[in-house]
Design a protein around this nucleic acid. Sequence first.
DNA 1: GATGAATGAGACTTCATTCAT
DNA 2: CATGAATGAAGTCTCATTCAT
Lengths: 218, 218, 218, 218
Amino acid sequence: MPVQQARARSRQQKILKAAASVFAKRGYQDVGMDEIARASGTSKGGVYFHFPGKDAVLLALLDQTSTLLRRKVEKAIAAADDPVARAEAALHVLLQTLSKHRSLARIFAIEALGAGGRLNQRVMQIQDEFAVLIQAQLDEAIVAGAIPPIDTRVAAQAWIGIFHSVIMRWLTAKERGESSPDLDETYETIRIMLFRSVGADPGHLPGAVQDDRDGQAR
Amino acid sequence: MPVQQARARSRQQKILKAAASVFAKRGYQDVGMDEIARASGTSKGGVYFHFPGKDAVLLALLDQTSTLLRRKVEKAIAAADDPVARAEAALHVLLQTLSKHRSLARIFAIEALGAGGRLNQRVMQIQDEFAVLIQAQLDEAIVAGAIPPIDTRVAAQAWIGIFHSVIMRWLTAKERGESSPDLDETYETIRIMLFRSVGADPGHLPGAVQDDRDGQAR
Amino acid sequence: MPVQQARARSRQQKILKAAASVFAKRGYQDVGMDEIARASGTSKGGVYFHFPGKDAVLLALLDQTSTLLRRKVEKAIAAADDPVARAEAALHVLLQTLSKHRSLARIFAIEALGAGGRLNQRVMQIQDEFAVLIQAQLDEAIVAGAIPPIDTRVAAQAWIGIFHSVIMRWLTAKERGESSPDLDETYETIRIMLFRSVGADPGHLPGAVQDDRDGQAR
Amino acid sequence: MPVQQARARSRQQKILKAAASVFAKRGYQDVGMDEIARASGTSKGGVYFHFPGKDAVLLALLDQTSTLLRRKVEKAIAAADDPVARAEAALHVLLQTLSKHRSLARIFAIEALGAGGRLNQRVMQIQDEFAVLIQAQLDEAIVAGAIPPIDTRVAAQAWIGIFHSVIMRWLTAKERGESSPDLDETYETIRIMLFRSVGADPGHLPGAVQDDRDGQAR
DNA sequence: GATGAATGAGACTTCATTCAT
DNA sequence: CATGAATGAAGTCTCATTCAT
């Protein structure tokens, strides 16, 4: 029955969308299945029909989102010219995408990390996946002689860490009494640091041009 | 009544120590006051006599620990020679200290995230405090001409992000099926990246020597 | 879904009935939700599904009971011949009904007092409602010239006070080492006092006849 | 050691006074021993040195107050001229005294009644003691031919009930959204009802004169 | 006598999950 | 497929009472 399957999928999407919204607004821990159900226009039993449990909802959300993100990242990588630019483009597109989906950003950066056990692991795994993508570009860059040899595994993870810190600052600015930082502006500095950190010349790709291209591409 | 006060203080310390242990082992969310009490050799009511609630226990733990850490960091900063080295020494001593107190590291990096908004904010605040320390060194470095001008606020935060990623990898390596990374080795790469990221010459301070000096400073 | 709703309503009734029983037997304060649940053949969570808290159970009990009582009282008022008799009939039927439901009597007169301000207020409100009914009859009696003018508001409240004292004595007789008073006998005296207190002639309605008529009215 | 005994007694009085205040303000159930201790300028252990438990504090308060009240009532009875006036004077002085000590009124009429078991019993006992005093006057009145024969036990209790209702209305007026009733005015009606209820002529003792005399006597 | 830290039973409440309808 | 009533384990917190100092 493809009709029913389609209905089921759409219902699942509705639930995931609603869950993303409430998780971001009130925190994974503080949201009950009741609330997810209500926000989805379903009943508690309905949610349980589609997902085996509360953490499965978040897990599905993480998986679905990370798949989409990875696709975007891969596209961005493919579109860039040289290895280091490719690595940088990966992070840049990640940042730009999440900056447009605050809920998802919060879920990845805070909610799922603090949700304990399985959820935590999955987030780290997803980070790993992105780190691997970046690492591959850095490896190429070394082979190409664009940057000096370095432990690219560690470097890629460090880049993810930088990225994470930017997102966190942005997400928690209001709660900390700061004005929300301008991400584009912040990223100017960040890109320079990324390039320099691996020994690449930040000057060989003028920031403004890069930014414009990226912005239009999406 | 210094006698009773002394007893109270020692009991508080006992509770905090026990709490650190159980929070790290089984997660803030999964630990009940029962468990904290049992681990402290106290009763539930005893814990509540000293702390108004479970989150207050974690809060006290964070505050106490962060104070100690800041002291260490300040000492390390004072002991280093030039501005960039001071900034780097801050992170290095942080890493070395937390690597010796896995429980505390886990609580700062992971558990506090799942403990609700207030705790969350506090962790970010504490990160800010360290960021400010680092930022001050970078500012000096720029004034001294050791590194080119840069948005030191963003840079300091990025450094914290790098540091954070190292800690997270180390904490979750086992759960992710990886072997626990050797932090000293990892840090070799990290330090180079830190220096380079702000345009400093990483070569001017050989790793081994740096390590030794740090060791003596503590 | 009238099926589920029917089940829910019946379950609520079961809970209220059980609560009335245990509250009367062991006192509102000494009864836990555990006990209410057990007595209802439900689980603690089940009680909380239907009532937001322990005091809400008592509140619902008071409301439901007072509605039933008011209906009885209004019927008795309608069945009596002259205004003063109507006022008296109101109290009489109240007494006769509560004397058959000791649990409810105890809950209204004693338990609700120890259940905190809100419940307390509600009981006074309910008393007010009955006082208003009586006051209306006394007002009519004055208009009809059956009794001399008087502050009927105060008078009605005084009647309630008399009624209350009878109930209290009856409820606490055993605990005070007295034999439980015969309410019918006591009421002989009470009725005379009620009539006299407002200047009515108590002789015009012989007790026995009054009693029979009341009995039929119900 | 009479000195120590005196100190002990004064400390007890301080505790009782403080307890009366906090019980009246926040309710017996909601007040903890901590609060009693703090309000007494003592420590929790200090309260336990003087009283075996929380209910013992309230019990002592009830006993002490009721003794004082009984003394006043007996004096008022002795001062009145004829038997019915004596009975009425008992209630009147009770009302006037409690109207000047709202805290105590609330404790007798609400807190202790809702406090369960022993406390409840004691309040009813105390009510009995006053009822007996009144009953004795009514008995004399019957012997003297001032009022027709009646079950004086029931009558006396009914009088107490009327008295209780007046106090309750006065105590809870604010919470019920009413303006606090003027007790003197209310009592005009009440006295007439009291007299009439036992078949006495309320005219034989003009209200105003009676009131003035009573007021001056105290 | 007094203090206040400590106890521990028990209160209320929440919520992920199950399942009859 | 969906509903929502029901479950029950577990959690946080309170507080009368005890007792070492």
